[in-house]
Amino acid sequence: MEPLLLGAVIVAAGGFAFLNGFHDVSNSVATAVRTRALTPTVAVLLAALFNLIGALLSTSLALFFTDAALGLPEGATGLGILMAALLAACIWGVITWYRGKPSSSTHALLGGVIGAGGASQLTNGPAMSGAGETLLLQIILPLVLSPVVAYLLAYAAVFPATWLLRHGSPAKVNRGNRMAQSVLAGVFALGHGLQDGQRTMAVILLALVGSGYATGSDIPLWVQLFAAVLLATGSLFGGWRITHTLGKRLVDIDPLRGMTAQGVSSAMLFIGAISLHFPLSSTHTMTSAIVGAGANQRFASVQRPRVARILLIWLGTAPATAIMGAVFFLALNPLL
Results as ranks from 00 to 15, higher is better:
Leu230Ser: 00
Ala8Asn: 01
Gly316Lys: 07
His23Asp: 00
Phe329Thr: 01
Val158Gln: 03
Gly112Leu: 04
Gly75Met: 06
Pro160Asn: 08
Phe64Asn: 10
Phe328Lys: 09
Leu136His: 05
Phe50Ala: 04
Thr77Ile: 04
Val42Thr: 14
Met268Ser: 03
Cys90Arg: 12
Ala320Val: 09
Gly71Gln: 01
Val29Tyr: 01
Leu153Asp: 01
His244Lys: 15
Ala55Asp: 08
Ile10Asp: 11
Val33Leu: 06
Ile53Tyr: 05
Ser105Lys: 04
Val113Ser: 06
Gly258Trp: 02
Phe270Arg: 02
Gln303Trp: 14
Val223Asn: 03
Leu141Gln: 13
Leu6Arg: 01
Leu122Ser: 15
Pro334Ala: 12
Gln121Pro: 04
Ala84Arg: 02
Arg34Gly: 08
Arg178Trp: 01
Pro279Thr: 13
Glu74Lys: 14
Ala85Tyr: 13
Ala12Asp: 09
Asp24Val: 00
Phe188Lys: 02
Met268Pro: 00
Gly132Trp: 05
Leu135Gly: 08
Leu230Met: 10
Met259Asp: 00
Ala131His: 14
Met324Cys: 09
His23Ala: 09
Asp252Phe: 03
Asp254Ile: 10
Ala318Leu: 15
Pro319Phe: 12
Leu336Met: 15
Leu46Thr: 05
Ala289Asn: 08
Pro73Glu: 12
Leu56Met: 10
Leu208Cys: 07
Ala273Asn: 11
Tyr151Gly: 08
Leu72Trp: 10
Val25Leu: 11
Thr215Pro: 00
Pro126His: 08
Arg309Asn: 12
Thr134Ile: 15
Ala47Gly: 09
Ser120His: 11
Val33Ala: 04
Arg34Asn: 09
Gly14Ser: 03
Leu49Trp: 02
Thr200Lys: 06
Ala62Glu: 06
Gly292Met: 04
Val229Gln: 02
Ala214Val: 02
Gly93Lys: 00
Leu236Ile: 05
Ile53Gly: 07
Glu2Thr: 15
Val113Asn: 03
Ala62Lys: 01
Ile219Gly: 05
Ile140Lys: 02
Val11Glu: 09
His277Glu: 15
Lys172Thr: 08
Gly210Met: 10
Leu236Ser: 14
Ala30Asn: 08
Gly54Tyr: 03
